[in-house]
């Protein structure tokens, strides 16, 4: 993907995602992602994390100073219940709507992004697409339709009482998105 196109998409994504109350960061590599995560942890005084495994998540956690925080990567059905932060890597970022897209067939991916009040999502900068329908096409073109595709746009929200917008209902009340420029390992296109 051409550099300038990527920058344009990122600018658009950030604008759209922030408009729906997500927080967007951009870092150089996985260890910088770890440091960004650490800032979030400190700011929110997080003591327990549930993380769905992936290469990028593992690298990010390596860079994290874990002295004051318990990090769980297994038995997540139990741990995600009272974890204060869920960490995962998503497959794609959609600029047009500020949306994250993920094949969430693995249970852990869904647990860490639904149960804890804060969700931190890592995404590789080269995994951006422009339009929502591009992401739909991407999944449609796979040999087998994934069992559970999740599109996430901002934190959970409701306007069910008097149409007053309230952030954070059943899902996370905060969504932090960390873009990683040089994630290493597997890349796309």
């Amino acid at each position: 993907m051409a550099g300038s196109k990527q920058e344009q998409l990122f600018t658009k994504f950030k604008e759209q995602a922030e408009a729906i109350s997500a927080r967007v960061y951009r870092v150089h590599d996985s260890s910088a992602a770890g440091r960004q995560l650490e800032n979030i942890i400190k700011e929110l005084n997080i003591k327990k994390i549930a993380a769905a495994k992936s290469g990028l998540v593992a690298d990010c956690l390596k860079a994290l100073n874990t002295q004051d925080v318990a990090v769980h990567t297994s038995d997540l059905r139990r741990h995600a219940e009272d974890a204060e932060l869920g960490l995962s890597e998503v497959d794609m970022a959609i600029a047009e709507t500020g949306t994250l897209a993920q094949d969430s067939t693995a249970l852990d991916q869904r647990l860490v992004s639904t149960l804890p009040p804060v969700h931190v999502a890592l995404v590789r900068i080269d995994r951006q697409v422009d339009k929502f329908v591009d992401a739909v096409d991407y999944f449609n073109e796979q040999d087998l339709m994934p069992g559970y595709i999740a599109f996430i746009s901002g934190p959970s929200r409701t306007a069910d009482i008097e149409r007053v917008l309230t952030i954070g209902v059943h899902g996370p009340e905060q969504l932090h998105i960390i873009f990683v420029d040089q994630a290493g390992g597997e890349t796309c296109e």
């Binding site: 709507t97 067939t105 249970l107 559970y148 996430i152 959970s156 899902g171």
Partner: peptide, 17 residues
């Protein structure tokens, strides 16, 4: 809204605890 907070696409059973 341009898109809702969540769009979920489910194809067949998936793992559960």
């Amino acid at each position: 809204q341009k898109i809702t907070s969540y769009v979920t696409m489910i194809t067949g059973p998936t793992p559960a605890a």
